[in-house]
Nucleic acid binder design. Sequence first.
DNA 1: CGCCTCTTTGAGCTCAATCAAGGTGTGTGG
DNA 2: CCACACACCTTGATTGAGCTCAAAGAGGCG
Lengths: 236, 236
Amino acid sequence: MNLGGKIDNNSAVSSAITELNKFEVFKGLSRDELERLCAGASIKVLTHRECLFHLGAPAHYFAIVLSGAMKLSKFTAAGDESVMYFSAPGDVIGALVMTQVNSVYPVMVKSMGPSRCIVINRQVYNENWLKNTELVSRIQTQLFSRMQRFQTQQSHSKLPLAAKIAQTLLELVSKGPDSDLIEIPITRKEIADHLGVASESVIRIMSEWTKEGYIEADDKFLRIVRPDVLIDLVGE
Amino acid sequence: MNLGGKIDNNSAVSSAITELNKFEVFKGLSRDELERLCAGASIKVLTHRECLFHLGAPAHYFAIVLSGAMKLSKFTAAGDESVMYFSAPGDVIGALVMTQVNSVYPVMVKSMGPSRCIVINRQVYNENWLKNTELVSRIQTQLFSRMQRFQTQQSHSKLPLAAKIAQTLLELVSKGPDSDLIEIPITRKEIADHLGVASESVIRIMSEWTKEGYIEADDKFLRIVRPDVLIDLVGE
DNA sequence: CGCCTCTTTGAGCTCAATCAAGGTGTGTGG
DNA sequence: CCACACACCTTGATTGAGCTCAAAGAGGCG
């Protein structure tokens, strides 16, 4: 198997399996069971903007994000990118498409910053994952929360742009340990593509926030200095 | 069990089980298995706009739509309705929330026109449904296509409103047997709430289409006279 | 019958898109 | 090492699609 990136050896897989216990979906599963779930898996280390799954490619694999972040997106007929989802460590990516026969990836998956993933074969999903009732239940819980995010976004569609940006930033920080730092290298254009708006509009609003001191754009990362103000904006 | 509507007796459940075979999710399952999946179920017959699940109510049940249609929505802080999804016969509703402990419905589910549903207990989902690997696989396939719909909508967010309305109407017809009639009583306001726009905007565009003869608003139902024109609008 | 929600149309306004033009940083190839 | 390309960031000016407000008609339901 060759996905076009660096793939570590079996000992790397073995140590990655150990990491899985810290994620909600895999908590309490036995070592044996985890090894069954990762049968034939490999570790993929991705650099910034490296592609994990290509849009339209045959969907033979799914993945678990170990560290870093992934951007799930597609391109519109007009040629601009539409970002569906930003995924965090612990997220299972591409699981739903595994149940389809002869299907292709419906989105493009690219790394944001350096990331590590466990890449697993489709067959293993259908033969080992689906048979573990507890695991299926947890996967569905993860899907539920992902669906919730879509629905929150939909219900915010009439809010002013500032509220939508605030909501997006607040969701991104909540994924890291530091409660007000966004540890993912995210551009304003990516935020714009996620919200389906022009990048200039995002820039205008975030520049204003920087001036007001609500956020700080140190170097590559983004820090939310006044989460209370952003929360207020969403609540409006 | 009392959900506030008419509930038929066991023979009605038995005949409803027979209907399940026509839906993709349940095709080929044995009568025995279907009865296990519908253990303790009841049939609920709903009238136009009757509520099946209330937003925020404890999620003890999920449902399968047998006929008619359902609207899944919630209210925004501003007080207007946000319609997440229009579901069709064969759709399994509320399954994802069943895996959550002590959870509540994240959306309100209301009937559009007269509908019939099988209502099933949460416990049955976790004990009987999740253990059937083939069924779980098909449920995930259904979730996949629902997710696809969300993503299509997201990628259309920069298109002009006319394209979004066209897309919505085309999705609604595709659910019925008659290939250009929308058999669900849907208001322009509901379309607007689904797209997160003002109802006046939808009315203006659809009035124009009626004048041009692209659509016909006979009585209660809506007929797409020129699907080609609407498809063109989306493609743009 | 009266209330309520949906529909319709018009007029004016506003927020975000678009267009334009310059700045910055990064990677690439000569 | 420099030059060039390319993608992103920034700011300003202009424009327009869709929102808001308003007012009136139409159907459904208790």
